[in-house]
Design a protein around this nucleic acid. Sequence first.
DNA 1: GCCAACGTTGGC
DNA 2: GCCAACGTTGGC
Length: 157
Amino acid sequence: MSTRKRHWLMKSEPTDFSIDDLQRVDVEPWTGVRNYQARNFMRQMQVGDGVLFYHSNTEVPGIYGIAEVASLPYPDPTQFRKKSKYFDEKATQEQPRWDLVDVKFVRKLRRGIALDEIRAHSEALGEEFALIRKGSRLSVLPVTAAQWKLLLSLEES
DNA sequence: GCCAACGTTGGC
DNA sequence: GCCAACGTTGGC
């Protein structure tokens, strides 16, 4: 397995869990992902990978902070908890279905990078960038080094 | 294996 | 709050 640092974008509804919440708790297990594609991306994550923290379902959706992957993937404990809204009756301790990683706060952006602004750079970011691909609702998605650099350069402009 | 029905995501 | 787009479920 490569040890080269990779980059990701992870979405969260700020009313549920925001970048300020992450700053407060410092490290948070990223529970509740119940989409196979998103789960498979988390399974590729390594400690130290960079994460763009995206606020969805909010007044100005966009990237508001930076985090990093703070654990290897491991089974999401909420899949075993009957009372959790993330409970999955088909998951067992022997054969878990859902994995997660811990996410650690790095910093807030000096200003949010709005989805509109990100879209304005779609040509440079590439058609295949899942964040702005039509109809894509992936909550965990890969970001290339070039995309990472471009997106963060917008913070300074 | 098809596909209609349903639930969810997430921008607007 | 609306609704388009998508993923999942379950009947057949």
